[in-house]
Amino acid sequence: MRLALFGSALRVAIGTAVATAAARPLFASGAPRTAAESGAGGRVTMRVDRTWRDADGPAVLIELTPQPGWHLSWSNPGEVGQPPRVQLTLPPTWKQGATRFGTPKVIREGAATAFGFDGTCSLLVSVEPAVTGIESPPTLPPLVTVDASWLVCQEKCERGSALEIKAMDVGKAQPMDAAVEARFPAPMPSGSTLRLMGSDGTGGPFEGVMEFTVPGVDAQGLLLLDLPSAVAPSSTGPFGATTSDGGASFKVSATIRPADIEIDAGQRPDPAASGLRIHGVVLRAGNRALAVDFNVPMSALRTNPSIGVPVTPSRPVDLAAPPQEPTP
């Protein structure tokens, strides 16, 4: 992760210090920073808020706010851009988990379509108990180092970074405030489904359509996806909706290569991501956005008659979403 490597050496050096730093002079390798990585820190202001507890446990809220006219990227930047990276250095009993992005916008950048934030980009970085057998010395304050780097764009792009150390007892996080929660997509409503429909050549990749159905969405809904490299959609999106009694339907034609899914799964430390992680957000005019999150197990892909076997037309496979409370 090139963007996140900038400050590793410095993080180690200041791991026990109580200070706040605004810039890092070294790469992980100790080599001087090149022109490609210097400067631009002033385009974006970083604010480390506090730890909040959501359904998945404690998470550190970080806000990145670009100057007016500039924008940051979502986890899937769209046709152009690059998402910000955050690396936490935590007390030894904790480890960094997944990053949850705030609700993005569709931003036009020249002729390209970008997904991102022209206002504050809120990031919730989850923290999880680490089985280390090492307890934090009780005499030291529980310090968290937040090391963020980003690409910020308007007519041109600039790279920036920031480092902040803050005393935070991550284990004593408060329940998430409603105003904070509202910056993020609401949980995927129950009844949401993903169907894979298509056929393939013998032993070849899946070629077909991923059909998402999400209740509570009208014809103005837009689906933005953040897909693993094993899934190649026919376009970056956003994908428009067709509506029916069951809600909005989004059809995304894509190629899925099972061999690449194995690679993806092997690179991800999260056991829950051992299958094909389909993640996205549905933007709704006048309403809070909805998360779209499916984890298609590897076993389902292996046994799916529409993958790996030349069946035309194939039987749709219902891959129900994990149970979630409907959006209020």
Binding site: T103, K105, V106, I107, R108, T113, V209, Q220, L222, S234, S235, T236, G237, P238, F239, G240, A241, T242, F250, K251, V252, S253, L283, R284, A285, G286, N287, R288, A289
Partner: peptide
Amino acid sequence: AVLSFSVLPVPAAAQSQQGGPTR
């Protein structure tokens, strides 16, 4: 959300996706 949608028209890419996939 309303502000977001009012200042950002649905891009052509999204319009082209209405009702099904395109290349």
